[in-house]
Amino acid sequence: MSRAEQASLEAAQWLTAQCDGPLSNEEQAIFEEWLNASDGNKAAYWRLELGWEEAGRINALDLGHDGFEPQSDSPKWRWWAGIGLAASVALMIGIYQFAGGWAVTQVGARPSELASASYSTSVGEKHLVGLPDGSRIQLNTQSSLRTRFTSDQREVWLDRGEAFFDVAHREDQPFVVHAGDREISVLGTQFSVRRDKDKTTVAVLEGRVRLVEMKDNRPVRTSLITAGDIAVASDTATFVGAKSENGVEQALSWRDGMLAFDQEPLSTIAAEFNRYNTRKLVLDAGVLGEIRITGTFPSDKPDAFARLLREAYGLRVDENEQHIRIYR
């Protein structure tokens, strides 16, 4: 095998591994050693990296019936957050054409027609929903949601979990999200709603939304939340956090398959990972929960996170099929 071919094959192996998620620390070290071994390796790797990035342009191709589509019932829409809005809308409509014709029949529908549907995701799953009005919902792990559209109102019930909403602007047809005893109403904007046991969190990426506390089906209090705000509503209190775009971005990082933390206690982080994985992170009693950690981690790799803890904090890790136990 020629030198060029050898370097190119090795580069492809590394690049493929990196497409599957961040390398572990050991892998990263081996990779860097390989990369730094020669300028030939660097040339091969950087060249392939650019080529493979450019190959992402196939997302802009109209592949029609020649295109291959996955057979799974629940494709993972991880590409969604990464590519341009216009392109993804176009592509989505295309893709839904094969996905059973649901969106096709809905796309051209007039708003006076009633449309109801329900969606849910299991642990670790994400699902993208295109709505008849052009709005889109991205459903996070372990979530369920129902929609009902009428000529004067677009309504969504977030029964559990978390969802990101990208709402198409419609002057005369408000978009309302029902989350327990809270109602979030908007005209057109981007925001997420998350329900936990005892609280509802709304993070606004763009535009503004109205958060209404409901009692016996009647509004009792209203707060206006604008871009960059995160509101936490619990019982009769609604707390709007200080403006921070980082905060909102962090709250939405799950859309890219990542979990972002800023000085969060380990116990919170473990609970977050456990939302996404059936294999649970278990912290040994006491001591550990208070360690605070900042960083961004892939949500589907609790084991990689645990390895990091082992290396960075000298904690011990015990893994089996169901659990990843962390102790001193």
Binding site: T16, C19, D20, G21, E54, A55, G56, R57, I58, N59, A60, L61, L63, G67, F68, P70, P75, K76, W77, R78, W79, G82, L91
Partner: peptide, 29 residues
């Protein structure tokens, strides 16, 4: 874009499938 399209056409069907699953649908290995 044209080069990507033509390049894709030169791949064997299996390799093309894999490239598309990874690049369009974001599937990992």
């Amino acid at each position: 874009l044209r080069r990507v399209e033509k390049g894709l056409a030169t791949l064997t069907p299996r390799v093309r499938q894999i490239v598309m699953l990874r690049k369009i649908h974001g599937f990992n290995t």
